[in-house]
Simulated assay, not measured.
Amino acid sequence: MRGGDHRLTRRMAAWDSAWTRRLLPPVEEAAEHTKLWWAAAVITAAGGGWRGRRAAAAGVAGMAVAELSNGVAKQLVERRRPPQEWIPHDDVEDRPDSSSFPSGHTAAGVAFTVAVAPSWPWAGAACAVPTVLVALERVHSGAHYPSDVAVGAAIGVAAAGLVRVAPRILIRPVG
């Protein structure tokens, strides 16, 4: 598995098309510090009435659970970022110093998107596009291996699921 992870990282980092040079750097900038998802929450809440407010609240809650879970996972698993010599472009200089495993950007994006979707499917579908772009960008920039992104996505799905079922569990009558 490690060999495939390494080969896929090198292949994705070597993408040199016009769309990757134009699209992925702004996506990365927007995703820093979850700015993209906070903006999506504001737009969803402001433009979607009660459904939008409910979707935005679920998305923010999912993102918060994912961020907490991802932070714990990063403390438990120390993994170096992909080697700089594998990354043939300048984005490699901007990589974080923290553990590569798992991808927090991906966890937050997937959690937000998956948590929004049950309340407002169209908003969830709209959020899926930048979520996928963020995941691709994390490997292209050399910040993560594909397996880091996959585990980040799994954390995001689990966080969104927890946000969805937690109210039912907490409000359930005893007895």
Rank of each mutant, 00 (worst) to 15 (best):
R2K: 13
G4A: 15
R7I: 05
R11V: 14
M12H: 08
A13W: 06
A13C: 09
A14P: 00
W15L: 15
D16H: 08
A18I: 04
W19S: 08
W19G: 01
T20W: 07
T20G: 01
R22F: 09
P25H: 07
P26S: 12
E28H: 11
A30Y: 01
A31K: 00
E32Y: 14
E32A: 15
H33I: 13
T34S: 01
K35L: 14
K35A: 15
K35M: 12
A40E: 02
V42M: 05
V42Q: 07
I43P: 03
T44Y: 05
A45V: 10
A46F: 00
W50G: 09
W50P: 06
R53P: 01
R54A: 14
A55D: 03
A57W: 05
A58D: 15
V60L: 15
V60H: 07
V60W: 05
A64M: 04
A64D: 01
A66K: 00
E67N: 15
S69W: 10
G71D: 06
K74T: 02
V77W: 00
E78C: 13
R79G: 15
Q84W: 04
E85G: 03
D91L: 15
R95Y: 03
R95G: 08
S98R: 12
H105F: 02
A108S: 05
A108G: 11
G109N: 04
F112Q: 14
A117Q: 07
A117G: 08
A123M: 11
C127T: 10
V129N: 03
V129G: 14
V134T: 06
A135S: 10
R138G: 14
R138K: 05
V139A: 04
V139H: 09
G142F: 01
A143G: 11
A143K: 08
H144D: 06
Y145W: 07
S147H: 11
A150Q: 07
A150M: 09
G152S: 03
G156N: 02
A158E: 03
A160H: 06
V163W: 01
V163P: 05
R164P: 06
A166M: 07
I169P: 00
R172P: 00
R172L: 06
P173I: 01
V174R: 14
V174D: 08
V174W: 02
G175F: 02
